[in-house]
C-alpha cells in the first residue's frame, strides 16, 4: 500500500487510493467531533440561549410568553430594579478604576523592581504570586476575619502600634466597605500584573536599553519614553483582563459582604445583582430568569464591546521589537 505524503489531505496527490483518503478524513473527523460537540453544547448553545431567554417571561423554571424588550426595560429603566442596576454598575466602574491604579500600578512598580534582579528577587517573585493561586473563598474568609471590628487582626494591629483611633468596622462601615474589598482584591491579584509586566520587561533587548541609556541619565525619562512603550503588549493584557475581571466581580464580595452588597448596597455589583435576580436570595426569594438573562446579556455586550474596542485601540500603540 503506498504511503500517503506527509502534507495532509489537501496536498495528497489525486492518485492516492480513495480508501486511504476517506480513511484519513474519518480520522480527522474522529479527532474533531468530540471537542467541537463539547464546545457547541456547553459554550455556544448556552451563550445564544441566554440571549433568547432574555426576551421571554419566566415563571420559575418554566418559560412563558415572548415579551420583547420588557425585561431589558425593567432592569434599565423601571424602579426599583433600575436603581439597583445603576448603583451596581457605578460600583463596578469604581472598582475597575481603583484596581487599575492600585493593582496594575503597583504591579508595574514591583515588576520593575524584580527586573533589576536584586538579591532575593526569586523569593520575592514567588511570594507576590502566592495569593494568586489561592481560592477567592479562602482569601475572602481570611480577610473577613481580619477585618472583624473587635477581634480582627487589622484593628488589633492598629491598636498595637498606637493607631487605635483609626480602627473601624471596615466591612460594616458604608465609607470603607468597598475600599476594603478593593484592597483585598489588589492584595490577592497584584502578582498577576507583576509577572506579566516582568515578562514584558525581560523581553526588551539589552542593546535598546544600552543605547537609550547613552541618551539620558534620567531613569524616569527612560521608563516613560523607552520602557513603557516597549512593554505595551503586557499593558494591553493587564488592562483588558482587569476590565473583564472587574465587571465579572462576584466571589469576593459574595464571601465578604454577602449577596446583598451590604451595607446598604454600598458594595453591590452587577455580578451580585445578577445572581440575586436569577437565583434568588433569602431576603427576596423570588427568582426571575427573564430579568436575570437580560442583565447577563447587557453585561456580556458591555464587556465584549468595550474589551474588544479597547484591545484594538491598545494594540495600535504597541510597537514590534
Amino acid at each position: 500500500m503506498p504511503a500517503p505524503t506527509s502534507n495532509g489531505i489537501s496536498r495528497t496527490p489525486a492518485r492516492t487510493p480513495r480508501l486511504r483518503v476517506s480513511g484519513r478524513g474519518l480520522w480527522i473527523t474522529f479527532l474533531l467531533v468530540p471537542p467541537v460537540v463539547v464546545m457547541a453544547l456547553f459554550v455556544i448553545y448556552p451563550i445564544f440561549s441566554a440571549l433568547a431567554y432574555a426576551f421571554y417571561d419566566w415563571q420559575g423554571l418554566a418559560r412563558g410568553d415572548f415579551v420583547g424588550f420588557a425585561n431589558f426595560e425593567k432592569v434599565l429603566f423601571q424602579q426599583p430594579f433600575a436603581a439597583t442596576t445603576w448603583n451596581a454598575f457605578k460600583n463596578n466602574i469604581f472598582v475597575f478604576f481603583a484596581l487599575m491604579i492600585i493593582q496594575n500600578g503597583l504591579g508595574f512598580i514591583l515588576a520593575y523592581a524584580l527586573w533589576r534582579d536584586l538579591p532575593g528577587a526569586r523569593f520575592h517573585r514567588i511570594a507576590v504570586f502566592l495569593p494568586v493561586v489561592l481560592s477567592t473563598v479562602i482569601i475572602g474568609y481570611v480577610w473577613k476575619l481580619f477585618f472583624h471590628p473587635i477581634f480582627g487582626a487589622v484593628n488589633q494591629l492598629l491598636k498595637a502600634v498606637g493607631l487605635g483611633s483609626l480602627a473601624t468596622p471596615w466591612l460594616g462601615d458604608a465609607d470603607t466597605a468597598l475600599n476594603a474589598l478593593i484592597f483585598v482584591n489588589a492584595w490577592a491579584w497584584v502578582g498577576f500584573p507583576t509577572l506579566v509586566f516582568l515578562a514584558g520587561l525581560q523581553r526588551i533587548p539589552s542593546e535598546i536599553l544600552d543605547a537609550a541609556r547613552m541618551e539620558t541619565d534620567s531613569e524616569l525619562t527612560l521608563i516613560r519614553r523607552v520602557i513603557w512603550p516597549l512593554i505595551a503588549p503586557s499593558a494591553t493584557v493587564c488592562f483588558v483582563l482587569l476590565f473583564i475581571g472587574s465587571f465579572n466581580w462576584f466571589e469576593l464580595p459574595y464571601i465578604m459582604v454577602g449577596l446583598d452588597g451590604s451595607p446598604y448596597g454600598n458594595t453591590d455589583v452587577l455580578g451580585l445583582y445578577f445572581y440575586r435576580t436569577a437565583f434568588g436570595n433569602q431576603s427576596a426569594g423570588i427568582q426571575d430568569f427573564g430579568m436575570g438573562s437580560a442583565l447577563a446579556v447587557l453585561m456580556f455586550l458591555f464587556i465584549a464591546v468595550v474589551a474588544t474596542s479597547w484591545t484594538i485601540y491598545l494594540r495600535k500603540r504597541e510597537i514590534e521589537v
Binding site: 451563550i47 465579572n248 436575570g292 464587556i303 465584549a304
Partner: peptide, 23 residues
C-alpha cells in the same frame, strides 16, 4: 475551526449560567 475555539477565550461562561442550569 481554530477561530471557533478562540472565540471561546473571550466568553465569560458565568454569564451563561441560566441556560447551563436549564440544560
Amino acid at each position: 475551526l481554530l477561530l471557533f475555539f478562540m472565540a471561546g477565550l473571550m466568553v465569560p461562561l458565568k454569564l451563561a449560567i441560566i441556560p447551563l442550569f436549564i440544560l
